[in-house]
């Protein structure tokens, strides 16, 4: 029983990160129909940026803020320089562009930072908390509550603010949104900036637990994408559920079956899901027009 609780704790922690990644995929996909394979790089940059900010003598909150702002700026630049110019290109081209961006960012990080593995101490110390025979790092609570905060804030943003509603409208029907005067290009830029900031924020929170290095992005992007798919690409609630589900299943697999194959869970799930429920757990079906 305490084993199960332990696996749930670690699963929820990792799952919260996956949920934030999946949310990032979702926001960009809704605004632009682009699946951004560079999403994992944002998480890496959040962590690495904070590491090097701290090393440069900044206090942790300032280093984290700088890392998040810098990454958000990079997200905007990615949209302006690589995604917008390729508007209307076939899916294969867009996939190659965002994977290219991921590889470029990874390469730049290895030059700009280094190729070492890094971490910094947890925000509330490193002493593990004990619950029902299982241990929980205080940093895990930071990760989970941080993710919860982002989801609540975004929910408020999407349902209350004019800009948020404009983003929702754009995701429903870009042409109609443009016709009623919504600046869809601005929405796209905003969504890239927002996604990048959310990714970096996840990186800031989770680095004390998982550590980070220049090359962790691709793996994170694939897991986050799997989570997004699991919930149904384009659905924020699906991103949350998909992320947590994937995190827990991975932790259970690692605990009860094989830690080597825990990364396989995401892909086995995805392939099964695509075969049997091609629209994800929360997706909707669109008819093909001829």
């Amino acid at each position: 029983m305490s084993d199960l609780l332990q696996f749930l704790f670690s699963g929820l922690t990792v799952g919260a990160v996956y949920a934030l990644l999946a949310l990032g995929f979702t926001i960009i996909f809704n605004a632009s129909d682009v699946v951004n394979f560079a999403q994992g790089e944002f998480v890496m940059l959040g962590g690495m940026g904070t590491v090097f900010g701290i090393a440069a003598g900044l206090p942790v909150p300032l280093a984290a803020l700088a890392a998040i702002m810098g990454t958000a700026f990079l997200g905007v630049a990615l949209n302006k320089l690589a995604i917008e110019p390729a508007r209307g290109a076939p899916v294969v081209s867009v996939i190659i562009i965002t994977i290219g961006a991921a590889i470029f960012i990874q390469g730049a990080a290895s030059v700009l930072f280094d190729k070492q593995i890094h971490r910094y101490p947890g925000f509330s110390g490193e002493r593990a908390l004990h619950f029902g025979g299982a241990t929980l790092l205080p940093q895990s609570l930071w990760v989970m509550s941080g993710a919860a905060m982002i989801f609540v804030a975004l929910w408020v943003f999407f349902t209350r603010s004019l800009t948020g509603k404009a983003m929702l409208a754009t995701s429903n029907n870009r042409l109609a949104a443009a016709l009623v005067g919504i600046n869809t290009r601005y929405i796209m830029t905003l969504s890239f900036g927002l996604s990048a900031a959310i990714g970096a924020f996840a990186g800031v929170l989770v680095t004390p637990i998982t550590m980070t290095a220049y090359n962790v992005g691709i793996g994170l992007a694939l897991s986050g994408f799997a989570a997004a798919m699991l919930g149904g690409l384009g659905n924020p609630v699906g991103a949350l559920v998909g992320g947590l589900l994937l995190g827990i299943l991975e932790a259970l697999t690692a605990g009860y079956i094989s830690s080597q194959y825990k990364d396989a869970v995401a892909f086995i799930l995805i392939i099964l899901l695509l075969f049997f429920m091609p629209q994800g757990l929360f997706g909707s079906k669109h008819a093909e027009r001829v």
């Binding site: 290109a89 867009v94 562009i97 290219g100 991921a102 590889i103 470029f104 390469g107 730049a108 290895s110």
Partner: peptide, 17 residues
């Protein structure tokens, strides 16, 4: 060698655009 990834990524993006 150090810039291999950056060059590869850049080539991918630029050619596609």
């Amino acid at each position: 060698h150090q810039y291999e990834h950056m060059v590869l990524g850049l080539v991918m993006i630029l050619v596609m655009i």
